[in-house]
Design a protein around this nucleic acid. Sequence first.
DNA 1: CGCATCATAAACAGCT
DNA 2: AAGCTGTTTATGATGC
Length: 432
Amino acid sequence: MGPVTGMTPDKNIETPGAEKVAGLSPLDTMGSLPEEVGADRPKASAVDCAPADEELTNLNWLHESTNLLNNFSLGSEGLAANNPLYDIEGDSSPIGCRNPEKTSASSKPPYSFSLLIYMAIEHSTNKCLPVKEIYSWILDRFPYFATAPTGWKNSVRHNLSLNKCFRKVERSHGKVNGKGSLWCVDPEYKPNLVQALKKQPFSAALALYTLPASPSSASPLSLSSATKPTRGQSVKDSDIDAATAMMLLNSSIKQEPLDYEKPQPLKVVLPKKRNYTSAFKHCTSLTLQENDSTVINIDPKEDHNYSASGTDSQRCESRSSVSSLSSVDEVYEFIPKNSRAGSDGSEGFHSEDETDIDYEEDALGDSGYASQPCVNSTGKDLHSKKLRKESCQDIDEELKEAAGSLLHLAGIRTCLDSLLKTAKAQSQKHRK
DNA sequence: CGCATCATAAACAGCT
DNA sequence: AAGCTGTTTATGATGC
C-alpha cells in the first residue's frame, strides 16, 4: 500500500473548502440514505473511552462489552471527537490505536479505495452494498471525502469495476432500493484484502472492529482458534493477525439489516472484470464456496491488475498458507455452528449447505479449538484422552498468545492472570 | 529505469 | 432530460 499512505499530499492541501457543493452532494442527494445507514449502525453514543481502557486489560472485555464495542466501531453520526472510529483520523485514540500519520478528518485516509470498499462491504450486514452505501460508509468513516473533490466516487466505482476483489451481484427482488447492483467482496480475493489490511496500521483493523453480538462467537475459544492457522503452526504469525482475526470475526457480525441487506438469494454476476488484480495468477483455479458452485478461473493472462495486496507470491501465500485469518469464512471454520446461526452474512458467497460433516472433518477443524468439543466424548482409550488434554494445554497457550497479541496491539498491558483465568475456565468448560 | 500499484480524470453507454 | 451506475481508457504519482 505504499502509494496509499503518501499519496498526493499536495492535493490534500488543494482540497476545496467544506462549502464545496459537489463534495457535499453525496449526503445531499442520497435522499433517505443517511437514515438507512443509520439503521445499519447503532447510533453512536459518546463512547466513554476510559472504561474501555480498563476493560481492555481483560479479555472478557472482548465479548462482554458489547455495547461499548458496538459504539466503538459502529458509530458514525459525526462524532469524530468521541467515536474511536474517527480516531483513525485523529489522535485521541483511547487504546493506542493512533494513526502514525495523525491524519485529520480533513486529510486523506491512509487506505486505498480497495480497502475502503472492502471495509465498507465487510461492515455491512449482508456483506453486500450498493455503491451508494459504500459512498455513505466511506463518508461516515472518513469525513475527508465530504469535502473532497467528487472524483473519489468515480474512483470508488472504478475500483469496484476493475478490482477483481469486488463482485457485482444482482438484487434478487428487483431494484427496490434504487438503481445499481450490490457489490460484494469476492471470497476468492478476500485474502488479498486481508493481507493488505494487515499491512495497514493497527487502526485499520480497529476501523472494522465491532464486537460480535453473540459472546460465544468472540469467546476466547473462537479467538484462539481463529488465530491458530493449523496444527503445528505457530500463532505467532503476527500480532496483526490477531487483530485481523478479531476484525474478521467481527465483520461477520450482523446488525439490523437494511432492506437490501436482508437475506436474499444473490445472483453473482459472472463473468466480470478483466484487468486489475492478478491475484493468484500463479495459482490454479479455485472453486468458490458459492451456492451455485461457481468456479472462478484466474486467468494467468490477467496480469496488469489492481490488487489489494502485494506481490503475486504474497497472494498465493495468502491463499494457501495464510489460512489463519485470511477470510471471515475461514475464521468461521472455527466457530461452532450454533454460534453462526445468528449470523446471516455472506449469503451471496458462502455456502449455506455446509454440512456438519464438512465442518467437523475440515482439516482446519482438526486442529481448531472449536472442533474439539464436537469430538464424541466416548474417548475410547487413554491415548485420546491424553491427546485431548494436551490439546487443552495447547489451547491455553494459544489463548495466552492470542490475547497477548491483541492486547499488545491495543497498546495495553496485558493482564495475564485474568486472561489465564478466563482461558482456563473456558478450557475447563470445554473439557467438560 | 522498469514495473507494479494506485489515484484521478474522463468518456461513454445503459438504466432509472 | 438529468442523474446515477458501471465500464473502459488514459495518465501521472509513488514505491520497490
